[in-house]
């Protein structure tokens, strides 16, 4: 009877271990990055600003693809649009909405310029990016103080 109880407790211990092992495996799975964040660093680093992180997911919830990619003229290419603050203030690209009317305006620098300094222009989480480039970490980035 005692040994049966002991067996049961061992079984339970191993089951719990199993669950923990499963959770550990889950935690080791590659980070989910299907949000399609675009890091845009054509000019930002050189200007002492953090690179821009464009959250595709946030915009896709609110707009069909064609609003930006047909009506506003955004190319399907990370960094391919050569966006500058002058163009944005002129109402082009991001500035078609980020003008204080449709969405918040350009004075909120850090809302867009929110990337880790030194991160190159790319689409985050694509298979090629994941296989070819290691995940970008703040520690790997060149230590440049980002200016406000």
């Amino acid at each position: 009877m005692t040994s049966y109880k002991a067996d049961r407790s061992i079984k339970w211990r191993f089951s719990i271990l199993g669950v923990l092992a499963g959770l550990a495996l889950l935690a080791m799975a590659p980070a989910k990055a299907e949000y399609a964040d675009v890091i845009i660093n054509n000019y930002a680093d050189a200007a002492g600003m953090r690179p821009v992180v464009f959250p595709h997911w946030f915009h896709r919830i609110r707009f069909r693809c064609k609003v930006c990619h047909a009506d506003l003229g955004f190319q399907f290419k990370a960094g391919g649009n050569k966006i500058t603050m002058a163009k944005i203030i002129d109402g082009k690209f991001c500035g078609a909405c980020h003008n204080g009317e449709v969405a918040w305006s350009v004075e909120n620098c850090n809302m867009c310029h929110s990337g880790i300094p030194g991160t190159p222009t790319h689409i985050h989480g694509s298979t090629v990016q994941r296989l070819v480039s290691p995940p970008y970490k703040a520690l790997n980035a060149p230590q440049q103080p980002a200016q406000q």
């Binding site: 199993g18 499963g22 799975a29 990055a33 985050h124």
Partner: peptide, 30 residues
Amino acid sequence: AGLAFAQKPEVAPPLTPLTADGVHDPENPA
């Protein structure tokens, strides 16, 4: 149990927060 957890995350894993996604600067005040 290990296989079940590892291969079938029927319960969607938590979505990566911005502070840990590898692209946002955690020191950004905004």
